[in-house]
């Protein structure tokens, strides 16, 4: 049962991230998740300083607020500095990370930051951190609500999101509120990144957004199909990667990333030789 809880919770986050990640990949914005996963450090540090003790909910709220602030700054900078998204992400990422480091250095006595947890998360603790009122992991209701919410959002908003992702200028010309949709997408990315961060760590959170959509991108010529393949790949890689880690005894998050990496390389190789291109989807 413990394995099942881990797989269910991680799969729900994997579904959310791969659905949103599909739009990030086609817009070449996937490194936004890397920026977010590192630059929320000031939010976490401030939560420690204000609260004085480790309180997950408090940290989560501060990290979310910090993430939304960072996304607003990124969106604003992108509107001012056109076509330099990588430079914007790199600058914001390092600036906020540096602010976080200074806060941790100044008030570090109260901080309890475990590098392993930050990198690879606490996936194996999922079944042991249960709710007071029910025999289920604390993260499960949150993962379920976020998963359903994200999939519903992507399903209902598919057309405006796809039009904006392909041709923002045309979208503006027909009256689509591009700013609203950009904020909606990036805010959801922020929420999923921060919620996943605790469970899967800063490395895998990026992989969950990047790998399944990138694999799907190589396998199809339609965004709808890309989304579906991306969701399937995300579940498969979680299941295979998790049981691989159980078998060989290593980190579950790292194993999942390795499985995704292998899937990705296979799609690149077979796509290059034209094998996948011949499949009619």
């Amino acid at each position: 049962m413990q394995d099942i809880w881990i797989l269910v919770v991680v799969s729900l986050f994997a579904l959310s991230s791969s659905a949103l990640g599909s739009f990030l990949v086609v817009r070449q914005m996937v490194m936004l998740t890397d920026t977010l996963s590192h630059s929320i450090l000031p939010g976490i540090a401030i939560a420690y300083i204000v609260q004085g003790e480790k309180n997950n909910l408090f940290i989560l709220i501060f990290a979310l607020l910090c993430g939304l602030l960072i996304v607003s700054i990124i969106n604003w900078l992108n509107s001012r500095i056109r076509n330099r998204n990588d430079a914007v992400l790199g600058s914001v990422y390092t600036f906020f990370f540096a602010v976080g480091i200074i806060l941790v250095t100044l008030f570090g006595e109260q901080a309890d930051l475990d590098t392993d947890c930050v990198l690879f998360g606490e996936m194996l603790y999922i079944p042991f951190d249960t709710l007071d009122w029910a025999e289920m992991p604390r993260n499960f209701p949150l993962a379920l609500v976020v998963g359903i919410g994200v999939l519903f959002f992507v399903w209902k908003s598919f057309r405006p999101l796809s039009i904006i992702s392909f041709d923002e200028t045309f979208a503006q010309s027909i009256g689509v509120n591009v700013t609203f949709w950009n904020y909606a997408l990036t805010s959801l990315v922020t929420i999923v990144t921060i919620l996943s961060f605790e469970i899967v760590g800063s490395v895998m959170v990026v992989a969950m957004f990047a790998f399944p959509p990138a694999i799907a991108f190589l396998l199809t010529k339609r965004l709808q199909i890309m989304l579906i393949i991306s969701l399937i790949v995300s579940i498969f890689s979680v299941v295979i990667g998790y049981y691989f880690s159980v078998w060989q005894g290593g980190s579950s998050a790292a194993s999942i990333v390795i499985v995704q990496g292998i899937f990705f390389m296979l799609s690149v190789i077979f796509n290059k030789v034209g094998f996948i291109n011949k499949i009619k989807i």
């Binding site: 392909f166 041709d167 200028t169 045309f170 010309s173 010529k221 339609r222 965004l223 890309m226």
Partner: peptide, 19 residues
Amino acid sequence: AYLPQRNSVDWDFPATVLD
């Protein structure tokens, strides 16, 4: 109807002509 310049979009985007 506004038609932007052709090079303003990424033509590797996963979409068919019909889409």
